[in-house]
């Protein structure tokens, strides 16, 4: 998957976890928490959705990389480069 495809995958996960949020003008450089109501339960869900959908394992000490969309995509790009696009 490319960076663009990974971004789309993360966006779909966020839509599933938080269907009441408007993600159309999400700023990739700003922390998710500052733009939407996400608590620690929701962050755990991002990790688990990635595992379920793409078989990527994210150890707990790496969770801080999921702070913004940009940092998430940067972190996931090497891990998901060989993952085929779902569907």
């Amino acid at each position: 998957m490319t960076g663009v495809e990974i971004r789309q995958a993360v966006l779909e996960i966020l839509e599933r976890i938080a269907p009441d949020e408007d993600l159309s003008d999400l700023d990739d450089a700003v922390a998710f928490r500052e733009q939407m109501e996400l608590d620690s339960m929701d962050f755990l869900d991002i990790v688990m959705e990635l595992r379920k959908g793409y078989r990527v394992q994210i150890p707990e000490e790496d969770y801080h990389n999921l702070n913004t969309m940009q940092s998430t995509v940067d972190y996931l790009t090497p891990k998901m480069k060989d993952v085929p696009v779902a569907g």
Binding site: R16, I17, A18, P19, D20, D39, M41, D42, D45
Partner: peptide, 9 residues
């Protein structure tokens, strides 16, 4: 309530 709806999808 919103928390549990989210969690249960």
């Amino acid at each position: 309530l919103s928390k549990l709806l989210r969690q249960l999808r």
